[in-house]
Write a protein that binds this DNA or RNA. Structure first.
Lengths: 220, 220, 220, 220
DNA sequence: TATGAATGAGAATTCATTCAT
DNA sequence: AATGAATGAATTCTCATTCAT
């Protein structure tokens, strides 16, 4: 008659949920939403079909859970570190932030592409995706605005820039899958991150005049 | 009904195919792949279910056809125009190219998001998406390389830059759907295009030293 | 390309619906609602499972259709005939009405028992059952009221009597199934009908005084 | 917990069984058989699902137990009282018997309707329902036969009359649920019982000639 | 060529029953 | 004795695809 404490039970439940959510993440990533079956997710989690329904109400809920599982970002911390960087190391710090972002995105690329699509089809899901994005956008915007105020950044519209940066980074990874010559298969992540950091800092135009002044850590 | 020449027949067939492909594009955009039914596509095209199968082998083929229908780009021409631009109008020309790209993407945003996902799930589809992208990438790369050689552009890796640019532009539009404060609902496309052009040309860093030299069409 | 006229098509559809409704009636009668599967109904109708759903939206709709199929009453006509009866043949006419009612009920006894139960569980179904009963009740009530006014019937509350009669007749058949010595297996329907008619006309008390008067077609 | 005597244990077991059977009766009445879940019955009894299976072998057994619970009749005693009635109070006594019967039936109307249906589907259940009915039928038949022999009742076939009476009483209550104008919602049970008693005693025909003679307890 | 009725494979979901604790 | 998590069989319903007309 040994019964578990309510706390222990809840912990077990949370663990099972995560176990299933991870399986869902894998299966959804591999097969998409429509093609993934609840059965295959259960099998992947090593459980029977019915068991899944003890922890999730529907297949749709599995998708939401998989999204929570995948969306844990490692980027915000590295962004905060970057902001605290000494002047002159901007390029390196930005490259580091970008690399982290790339790695995060690469881990679940297929799933994020699925998410983009499902968010079109499923309004509740879209709401959740938006909620998660909001926090991220606001944090980065704050960083940018401080940079502009300090004179460390050009006077660009931060609303646009934050989205341009986000699109650039996410797009680079997520569109790479159907690139005829995938970038991330031909260059190391670090390399791409550094090159993108340069592009982002100095733009497309040649910076010849600038090299005239002592720009520590400057390039070329 | 009088007999038609083989040519006329083929023309009719092509027309019917396109009629169905357009219907498919609309329905897929609105509902996604799994949720779209062949019946709804047939209905949208004003035909019976069976008729669709006279022109397409399967639902999957409908998706491929919808993709061909959607992927007609208006961007390459505007890019060529841009390249021929006189120095000093770079910003305007780039903004124009970007605007065209944005408009193209916005027309079928939901469908492109679907495509990104289906390309993960369906290898043949991925092949086709890649093929279409290749031509585009190569064209833009050539433009960039010429710019670098002429000294008009910074010495960045064109492989990276072309993808970064593409990701930036596509990402801005495609991710906007689940932006908590959608950019393209709050700014005119032209405005976004111009701001992004500036960002892309000059980068994030302040350009104060540069304004010292006569930079026609310079900014702010 | 021979297409059917809209009329012919509708006739075919009606026929198919009835074919399926009859199969449903049989299967529901034999197995009950929960135990009956749509598949078994389809098989009984000689069709594939999916075909059933071309004609009915759900299993529940099949039940409603089966009910319409079963509830076609042969009783009202015979009731009207009875009312027109010459005095003195009351007993015979009533027996005839009862016999018809018994036969109707016996044809689908199990199904009517199911109906009584489902009407408890399913509100929409209850509504339909009620609607069908209403017409019947009102007709019989009118007959009774006329009888009372003419002095041909005792001054009883017609509301109660119509229900008492209905309950008696329906109950006799429907409860017979779990009678340890089923009446209708041991007596001919006609016999039961006649005996019940006597009971209903003269009641339980002995009618000795009455035999004193010349009661043509009187009894015993 | 101290050991219990075998007797005390058995008593506890019986009590638990009844507790569950009552819960089953309620849930079956409210939802029907197929729609009722063992879980909901367990919850209603304040127990866990598994516990139910310590006392009953299957869901079907729960139904049998619920039937035993519901079928305890209060009618036989009142019938015996009625038989002992002095002449002249027949109408009142019969009305009293009927009222008791009505009340018993009304308490579990939905369940009895379910029972009628399940008895069709489940042979063992039918056997049990029959067994319970037998005792009742025989008792009432004896009463009727004595009445006929004493000359207190008309010379009708008691086999038919006992069933006609039973059908009438049970039917009145059980069919009332889907009566468009339910009798028992519009008349007091006593009223219905009295009116039905009159109908049953004197029949539908007017008793005018009869009132001429001294008919003790006559009507109107 | 066009139609849409028919098919049946396949998927999500429920729930009676079992069993380790 | 009591629990409730786990199981998986079974069911309803959908829809891509076929085919007779």
């Amino acid at each position: 008659m040994a019964r578990l404490t309510a706390q222990a039970r809840r912990a077990l439940t949370r663990e099972r949920r995560q176990q299933i959510a991870r399986a869902a993440l894998e299966v959804f990533s591999a097969r998409g939403y429509g093609e993934a079956t609840v059965r295959s997710i259960a099998r992947r989690a090593g459980l029977a079909e019915g068991t899944v329904y003890l922890y999730f109400r529907s297949k749709r809920d599995l998708l939401l859970a998989a999204w929570e599982e995948a969306a844990v970002s490692t980027v915000l911390p590295s962004l905060r570190r970057a902001e605290a960087a000494a002047p002159g190391t901007e390029e390196e710090m930005l490259a580091a932030v970008f690399r982290d972002q790339f790695l995060t995105l690469m881990r679940h690329g297929a799933f994020f592409r699925l998410v983009m699509h499902r968010a079109d089809v499923d309004a509740e899901f879209r709401r959740r995706v938006r909620a998660r994005l909001r926090e991220f956008l606001e944090e980065v915007m704050r960083v940018l605005q401080r940079g502009v105020q300090r004179g460390a950044l050009a006077q660009l519209n931060p609303e646009v820039v934050v989205r341009a940066l986000g699109a650039l980074l996410r797009g680079l990874v997520l569109f790479d899958r159907y690139d005829p010559k995938p970038l991330f298969q031909r260059y190391a992540v670090e390399e791409v991150a550094r090159e993108v950091a340069r592009f982002v800092l100095y733009g497309l135009l040649p910076r010849t005049p600038r090299t005239a002044e002592p720009s520590p850590g400057g390039r070329r």
